[in-house]
Computed example of a mutant assay.
Amino acid sequence: MTALGFLYPGHSAEDDYPRIEMLLASDIRLVLIHTDIGEDAHRVDALLEMGSADRLAAKVEELRLAGAEAVVWACTSGSFVFGWEGAHEQVRNLAKAAGMPASSTSFAFAHAVRELGASRVAIAATYPEDVAEHFAAFLKASGAEVVGTRGSGIITAAEVGTWGRDEVLALARDGDHPDADVVLLPDTALHTAAYIRDLEADLGKPVLTANQVTVWEALRLAGRRANCPALGQLFAKEPIVQVRD
């Protein structure tokens, strides 16, 4: 049995995780602990506070008691707003506090893009445009070429969590770009686990979504392999390749 830990802000699309655990159909257990979200706002100041070291450290003891072998901060916007170097510092602090390997959803996206052998990405974000541009800057720092960035102007995770299949498909279509090798949907508040195959079939290319890559990153940290085509092309590649920054 491998237990993978996730620190998830508030309540919105956390039910993606038991769905993914079921799809993996393995001895992998996904342990999700909710952090204090503070102000629910896709606004830079609120996101910096949401991802502060103290807020994350406050919940790591619960993960240790649950037997987690690795932890991922399951929040994209609450990591990339710190910038490339700041996001590294965030996960270093998290690893030190937790006493286990750590990462974040932002780095999960960067690593997953490399795993797919992609170089050009399109961003289909729920966020306001200014926040989406912070994600674009983060990906550029990782070495990816961002060929398109589209924000949707949604301020709260609570609203994003109400979106269903039709809204998710529309988001991906609107954010796609003909030059993109892969389309990224970077919000862990967005339900996507049930729609990844539909998204890839609709767009005709790989699609990376926040909760999907977050689980993949935790598996990578724990040195586990998982082949699960229901979770898209990222999970159809085996073994998972170790990525060094």
Rank of each mutant, 00 (worst) to 15 (best):
L47F: 05
F6A: 00
A58K: 05
V182E: 06
L219Q: 14
G204V: 00
L47N: 09
N93K: 14
A226P: 12
A141I: 00
G232D: 10
R173L: 08
E14A: 14
A122C: 06
E61S: 12
V113E: 11
V31P: 06
E69L: 06
G153L: 00
T35P: 14
D187N: 14
A210P: 12
H88K: 09
Y8H: 06
V241K: 13
Q233H: 10
A170Q: 14
L94K: 01
A25V: 00
A102L: 05
A236N: 10
A74R: 00
V207D: 10
T188R: 08
A98C: 09
Y195V: 10
D16N: 12
A112I: 07
G86L: 02
S142G: 15
E200Q: 12
L32D: 07
M22H: 06
A118C: 15
A210F: 05
W216M: 08
A58P: 13
V215P: 13
D16S: 04
A3F: 02
H191K: 15
H134I: 02
E39W: 00
A222M: 05
K237W: 01
V213Y: 05
Y195N: 09
K96Y: 02
I240R: 09
A70F: 06
F107G: 01
A194P: 04
A201Y: 07
D198H: 12
G78L: 01
E217M: 09
R19V: 14
Y8G: 05
V243T: 08
V71P: 13
A194Y: 05
A95V: 11
S106G: 15
A66C: 13
V160I: 11
T35Y: 13
P9A: 01
A66S: 15
E115R: 14
I154K: 06
C228W: 08
G164K: 12
F235Q: 02
G10C: 03
A3M: 02
A70Q: 11
A122Y: 07
L203S: 03
A13W: 11
V215D: 11
D176N: 10
E167W: 02
A53S: 15
A218C: 10
A218L: 07
G148L: 07
L184R: 00
H34M: 02
V91K: 03
L65I: 01
